[in-house]
Amino acid sequence: MGHNGKMIRKKDLTFLQKSYIPEILKGMRQTIAEMFKPKFTFRYPEERFRPNPSFRGRPVLVQENEVERCVACGLCSRVCPALAIEVQASETELEKERYPIKFEINMVRCIFCGFCEEVCPEEAIVMSNEYELVFSSQEEALFGKDRLLKSAEELKPRLEFLRLNR
């Protein structure tokens, strides 16, 4: 297809176009120009990719005033298509009355769809910007509360992004 969406047949080509040479030089100018453009890849361990707030990294629990926001309603574990989340509720003296005594995400199962974040009524579980997840065993991939809790200040960009875009 040509520039105007018109089909170009071989018989319509000029002699110079048929001789390939100017067209090849044009193409080579493009490739050489491409060489000096900024690179898309990183020198990974030294330079790391810094995701935008829109990035869906591993899910974390939001921690505010030393306590998780989660009220253990269990919606996230209900909506999780990969059945990765397990929540066990218990009672607390705090205003929210319920809290998860056990909150476990199996990171081998998690598919980073973000449904848990979308369904959460308390904005208690959000997708963080962490993407480096390495395990050497199945047990290690079970993230309990100790590894899921993250302070609200750290997650501020994501929380703001969610307020604006949801």
Binding site: E34, M35, K37, K39, F40, T41, F42
Partner: peptide, 10 residues
Amino acid sequence: RVSAFIQNRL
């Protein structure tokens, strides 16, 4: 290296 640069890689 040149092919990488042409494809915007390192």
